[in-house]
Design a protein around this nucleic acid. Structure first.
Lengths: 142, 142
DNA sequence: CTTCGTGCAAAATGTTTGCATAAGC
DNA sequence: GCTTATGCAAACATTTTGCACGAAG
């Protein structure tokens, strides 16, 4: 129960990054986020904490955090990039095209098959992501 | 051996779209493409056929073709969208981060598991795509 | 002949960058 | 003190749009 929400300062230090107020604010905002915010949405959230934090810093910090492997960038279709704390358990995303809802899904069997396939081709996986656009199935008359 | 490269005009008509010279040129360019060109790359290729064809038309046509289901838009990371003729057999893409090469891969087992999972959650798949960023595995000393 | 697609230029969007200042180490 | 991060505004790349004209059905 000690590293549920690890100290952002420590996480930054461990990643070899300088610990600044802005980076801690941003990392905390992402850690606290239940959704998958875009740079712009994050900007609004961190501004509520630190009025002076700029959008440029949000972008620069997101790049730095991604490069350090602390966060993951998700490229959805026809919309700005979204971000999430690097998941401990690999998972993918369903996007309900009607509501816009993003649902996380994990399937060990699929992950295993994928890793095997890639390995057999002589590659190693750096990162992976599956995006499935879905619609609620009509189980009854509507 | 009759519908290997179907008549673009017919394909457009079947999709309920007006048959214009520009759309045929673009659809042919994509059908002939061995790679996954971006809007800009396609623009260069179609301009070689029809000098007057504009970039705006390329974008508008790509949107129309995608909506009609004739082509698929691929959202890669940190680069413009790429396009391909809608594949008959569902497949995903490996991107070699060192060379930039895009490799198509298909795995029926994975596709089946995915469809099952999504179905069990009460959804139906509209479209799906897996992007795997990879690096060549060192099999020997380098 | 009516509707829809096109070209052009301008605009909108999302993201990056140069520079002077401020903060981390 | 030396190095790196930040804020601001300007630049950038990609994609979208308003409008007048031309082509498709």
């Amino acid at each position: 129960m000690s590293d549920q929400t690890p100290d952002p300062a420590q996480a930054l230090r461990d990643a070899g990054l300088r610990v600044t107020q802005q980076r801690m604010t941003l990392l905390s905002a992402l850690t606290d986020a239940a959704d998958h915010p875009s740079a712009d949405e994050l900007f609004l959230r961190v501004k509520a904490v630190d009025e002076s934090l700029s959008l440029a810093t949000v972008y620069r910090t997101l790049s730095a955090l991604e490069e350090a492997g602390l966060i993951r960038k998700l490229s959805f279709e026809n919309e700005p990039a979204r971000f999430e704390i690097t998941p401990v358990l690999e998972h993918d995303h369903l996007v309900d095209v009607e509501t816009g809802a993003v649902i996380e899904v994990a399937n060990d069997e699929i992950n295993r098959l994928r890793a095997e396939m890639v390995h057999a081709m002589g590659y190693e996986i750096i990162s992976q992501h599956t995006l499935i656009r879905v619609r609620k199935r009509q189980t009854r008359i509507e």
